[in-house]
Structures are given as C-alpha cells and as structure tokens.
Write a protein that binds this DNA or RNA. Structure first.
Lengths: 360, 360
DNA sequence: CTGAAAGCGCTTACAG
DNA sequence: CTGAAAGCGCTTACAG
C-alpha cells in the first residue's frame, strides 16, 4: 500500500537466526516441543524485523480445515433468506481457504428444534457456530458447554447476552427503539397518544427495542401519552387485533395518533389494521424490510421501518470466524453493530426477489 | 460449503486430458501460443469437470502485481477520511495478493490538481484508477485515454457519467433527493413553502439530487410550493446567506416551512441560519454525516441527513478491482449503489474521531 | 505449439 | 528439542 518494503519470509527469518523454518513455525505458532529460550529469541527477532506471515501461503499449506456450522431457520424465508445469503456469499469468498461453512436448517425460529441441533454438536465436530438464538436465556447452558470445548459461538440478529458466546452481531436494539420513537415523535409533532406493542417476551431484540422506544419518548416527547399494549409474539394476527381493539376503544376526544411494535412480522399486522382505518391518518413506524412491509410502505400505511441489514449480519459472522481461524486474530469485539437504517418509501429500489411466506 | 466434492486441480485436469499443466494454463488463461483445437478441448473438459482455479494458489504463484492508484483529496478531511479508510482497509485485506494500492493526495477536491495527476498516468504505470471526479465532464478525455490504454477506472462518490469509466460506486442521487423530499414532505405534512438550494452546478451528485427532490415533491406533495434558490457550491457561508435572505424576504402570511440543500458542507450553513431563526421551527433535511452536521442533528436544528456510506464506497472500489485483476471476473456492474440512509439524532452513536475542518 | 521443472511462502509428517 | 524435505495448486521462464 504505502511504499513499505517487501515483507520478510520465514526463510529469511530462519537464515537470520540460524535455525530451520520448522523451528520458526513452532516458535511463532505454538506447535509442539520447543525450548522456551529459542521460542523467545525467535519471537523477539520476528517482531524486530516486522515479520508477518503470508496468509494465503498459510491457507494453501494447511491440511486441516476449520469447521463452521450455521443454524438458520427456513421460515420466515423472507427474513432469514438475507442472513443466509450473507453467510453463503462470505463462505464462497473463502472457499479456497481451509475453512468450511455448513448450514443446518430448522423449520422455523423455534427453541426446541434449535436446541436439539446444538445438543448434538461438540468441540470435535465443529470449531465455530453461528446462531440466531430463539431465546435470550434458554440456550445459555448449551452455548456455554460449546464455548468450554473451544467452539467459538457467534450470535447473529438476536442475542443470548449472558451466555459465553464470543460476539453478538446485529442491531443496537435500544437505539433502534429510540430511533423509531424519534421519528414517530417528529411525525406526531410531539402530541397525542401512541400505542406500543411488544413482540416475544423472551426474545432479546424485542424487549430491548421497546425499552429504547419508551425511554426516548419519555425523555424527548414528554407530552406524548404511551398506551402500553400486549405482547403479540411475532404474530401479525395478534398485532392486528390489538390495534383494532385500541382504536375502537379509544375515547373520541383522545384518538390514537401513532402505533409502534417491536417486531418485523408484527409490523404488517399493524399495517393491515391501519389500512382498514382509512382515511384517518395514524402514524406508524415498524421494523424490517419484509415484502409485506414494503407493500404498506409503498401505499403509505407504514411511514417507515427501521432496518437491521440481515445480509451483512450473516456475512460479518463468517468474516469474524475467518479472522479468528485463518488470520488468527485474537481480539474480538463483543458487539458488532449493524444496520440502524430508517427506511422510507424511496429507500426501496424494487421488490425483493423471494416471495412472501403467507397470505396475510 | 455444501457437501460439494473436493475441487479438481490443474494436475488432475492435465492428467485426464493427457497434456501438461502448462498447456492447461495457456488454454484457460489465454497466454501465448496454443492451437485453437486443444484450447477448445481443454476448455470444454474443464467446464465438464467443474474446474475452478484455486485463487490463493494463483495469488501465491503470480510474479507481476496489479497496480492500483487512488486519487483522494485531503480536504475536507471529515468527509474524505472515511473513503480513505475504506480504501486502506480493503487494500490491507488483500496485502498478500499480487495487488497494490497507492494513494495520491490532492490538497482539496479540485479539478485542476486532479487532472494534473491523471495526466501523468498511463497504462504502463498503473492498471486501475480510483477517482472521486471533481467535475462531471471535464475529466472525460483523460479518463477515456486511460480506459483506451487498458486501465480500469472506477468513479467513487460522484460520477463522470459520459466517460468510459467502468463503474460508478455511490448513491443513486435521484433517489437520494427523492428521499430527502419524502421526509421533508412528511414533516411539513404536505403544506407550505420549501426552499431548495443547489450545490455545484458541475458536480453530478449535486444536480441529480435536486432533480430527484423536485420530482418527488411535485409527484407526491403537490400542495407544497417550491422556492428555487441559488447554487451555493459547497460553501456553508453562501448557503447561510441564501437561507437568511429567503426567511427575511418571505411574506408573513407565507413563511418558509422547510429547507433543502443538495450538499453536505452546505447543510451546516443552512443549519446555522435556522438556529438563529429560533424558536420558529423550520424543517430541514440535509446530506452527509459530517461533524458539523452531527452537532446540529443533536440540537435538533437538522431533522435528518441522508448519508452515503463513504467508507463502503472506498472499500468496494478496491474490492471491485480485486475481483477484476485477481479473480478475473469479467462482468462489472456499471452502478454499485451504496448508502441511502436516513440519519436521525439516534442514528449517531458518538462523535466521529477526526476533527472538523474549519471554524464555521 | 507443448512440456519439464522451479518457485511462491507457508505447514507438516518424519527422522534424528 | 530441532532439521531436511515434501507438498499445497498454481504461474512462469526455459527448452525443445
């Protein structure tokens, strides 16, 4: 890049020190028997001469491969497809390296099924695990067992924050909720009643977003009254009913001015209820660029969604594992924050290729 | 990744066909003398057996290196720093490949200086060029000359659309303008007068954004009246004065409800004028996450900026060149669209590390 | 027009 | 505890 001199090789380093290249390898990569004295001498000299291994040569020479397993739900396809593509593209990118990514599917985003797969894994069958945890706590013991066996576990999209997973890759959920509140507050001009709906009570992403949402309104839009609605899991139908109920039972002099829900699939349930409530305009900020949500964004029923870049989450997870196993980086950020994008109608270029999951 | 069988090598392919590996290489990589007949036979068989070269082995073996030159302005640092970091990080990522990226700085984003550097380049000194064109047309003949000599030219951040550059990496400017209009229209609830200010008349990014802005308002917010203001180049002071003038001369019964400007540096000039106009709230959507704009986002004077992911633009430019020279991909998208993000106060995690350029 | 052989910078049995 | 040598899958002079 800069006018840096050609990098030094193990051969030159070996010659300089009067030892063999095999010894260099043992010293620098901690393999097998070597006297502490020579190890240290070699390490120091390598440092002095600025030795850095040629990673592609290493990759070409290595005989054993790091085995990564990624557990990804099949449904809802419109959401997990993007994470999957990110994982696949990154894996293909590293296809020539001693590094393989195998994908295991669960039928849906379900704790029991996910736990079954993880139970059968151990430190001899894989070196790394990519996971979208279906529960914020219930997988901790399995994750911790794997971590104890030397498996590097990465949580993607949602987190198991108290487990021994190495890294979480995804949204800063608190800020995501705050962002939705900020926009909703602006659109409502800081006035009126806003209905706040929950997702799953046991999914970290959902609870944290609502926390951020409420905090932001309280701090910056004190005149907005928050109407706390029920958890709707990730179920559009329940979200639909909750919104209908709130609209119908609101006193005429204090109507609903805005709606919030902390989940992507719930968002289009909310949107359907609001569409039926035309022509009264109720502001609504949801989550995730799902095909159903895009439809309502186009028609104006959804003002905006906050997006989390699922493709990049998948891609970055593989990259992080590559950095660990191939580049042998030892430091790993606990949080890799991706995607906190406000998506409006004009943010969407065209319909995503994959179809929708259901006829809702 | 999947349970794909081990990839076939040149050695096996050669054995299968009863030729040498050198011949395989000549056939597949179009090097030197080879009879059309054997070339075709080898190509067909390679296809049948699904041969794909091991790219890291290739990189390790190659003796000549692709030379990439990137021309990046030093000022304004707060903006170009990010592009530069993207370029540097990507280049470092490929440090072991026969692929070098050299950065040449201009002092500011200036046509004359930029053209001087390009004039001294040719097909023997470099293979690829990364450029943030300082003019939408005036560099065309130099770009075309380089393209004619086999240099792959990539425009980043702004475009020279009628030149023979291979790819433009950056925003869809029309949509960026539309997005700003959509948000401003929503915030103003489709009512009132909106002042639209220009940037440089010769920078593609600026003119196209304003085009998109005007179209969106006309199509979706027909009741908004557009007040067409002057070009302010990229000068905060001129933007400041234009806004002051418009506010002062607006008739009391038809005040300014919103402001738009198509440039990032202009945005903080607008914001300063609006801050002085407190407490009347005038909506404002600008461009780019510059430190000065972040300040006004925090205080609420700027409602939002539309962001273009400069880091990624730099990174992707290097990656595209790598794909061409190392992976030898022959197809290249003419447009790689990055960053069309709406940034609100809560989108910003913390102040960027680098300082500001001037005391404005 | 084609092939045999050396080499890129590492890792890894194998021998001592 | 240490070294000599083969090998990863390509490219590239060199020879024919």
């Amino acid at each position: 890049m800069k006018a840096e001199r050609r990098r030094i090789t193990t051969r030159e380093l070996a010659q300089d020190l009067g030892v063999s290249r095999a010894t260099i390898d043992r010293a620098l990569n901690g393999r097998g028997r070597i006297s502490e004295e020579t190890r240290e001498r070699i390490a120091r000299r390598a440092q002095e001469l600025g030795y850095r291994p040629n990673l592609i040569a290493r990759s070409l020479a290595m005989t054993t491969s790091a085995r990564i397993i990624a557990i990804v739900p099949k449904q809802p396809a419109s959401f997990f497809q993007s994470i999957l593509e990110g994982i696949r593209d990154a894996a293909e990118n590293y296809a020539d390296h001693p590094f393989s990514v195998e994908i295991r599917h669960t039928s849906k985003h379900d704790l029991t099924e996910q736990r079954e797969i993880i139970r059968r894994l151990d430190g001899t069958t894989c070196n790394g695990l990519i996971l979208v945890p279906a529960h914020s706590r219930a997988l901790n013991s399995e994750i911790d067992r794997l971590a104890g066996e030397g498996v590097m576990v990465i949580c993607v999209n949602s987190d198991a924050p108290e487990s021994r997973r190495t890294t979480f890759i995804g949204q800063d959920f608190i800020r995501a909720g705050r962002l939705a509140a900020e926009l909703l507050g602006k659109l409502a001009r800081g006035q009126g009643r806003v209905l706040s709906l929950g997702g799953f009570p046991d999914i970290w992403a959902h609870t944290q977003r609502t926390l951020g949402f409420v905090r932001e309104l309280e701090e910056h839009y004190p005149e907005i009254e928050i109407l706390h609605g029920p958890f709707c899991d990730d179920d559009p139908q329940r979200a639909y009913e909750a919104v209908r109920g709130a609209i119908d039972s609101a006193p005429p002099d204090r109507p609903i001015a805005g709606v919030y829900i902390s989940t992507g699939a719930g968002s289009w349930g909310v949107a359907r209820a609001l569409r039926e409530n035309q022509p009264r305009k109720i502001h609504f900020v949801g989550f995730d660029v799902l095909p159903e949500n895009v439809k309502y964004l186009r028609s104006g029923t959804i003002d905006a969604v906050v997006e989390q870049e699922p493709y990049r989450q998948g891609y970055d997870a593989v990259e992080q594992l590559h950095r660990h196993f191939i580049e042998r980086k030892t430091e790993h950020a606990e949080y890799v924050l991706t995607g906190l994008d406000v998506i409006l109608r004009n943010s969407i270029p065209e319909l995503p290729e994959h179809g929708t999951d259901q006829q809702f």
